[in-house]
Amino acid sequence: MADELMLEIVSPEKMVFSGKIEEVTIPGTEGEFGVLRGHEAFLSSVDIGELNFLKEGKKTLYAVNTGYAEVTSDKVTVLIETAERSDHIDKERALKAKDNAETRLSQLTKEDVEYELARAALARAIARISVAEKQ
């Protein structure tokens, strides 16, 4: 099919996904962006959030961590540190992580270097919960 796009999602543990898809939506640091075949070539960093793609009309969701995406006209490579498919997420754990991060965050001020870490942990937990709920 002419409008197919090759997608590769690579994490340190494994090749998370590799295959032909129709469309992918990636949570870039400058905002979410969708990619179809024929997109201009570019490189973007990926933020914590939700990545989804359409394959044969079916949507698959992943909660992803920081990384980057390399887009060419017929191929998208996403490199991220973690990626969890929506049906593999342990929602209990995510909720607990969110509580932890919130308490930690409340004890820190913006000047603390740890503030960023706690904020990132919170964002991760929220992304996982929202992905888990959508599935």
Partner: peptide, 8 residues
């Protein structure tokens, strides 16, 4: 990466 656009 000559022809690439970068974001950011």
């Amino acid at each position: 990466f000559l022809d690439y656009a970068y974001e950011p």
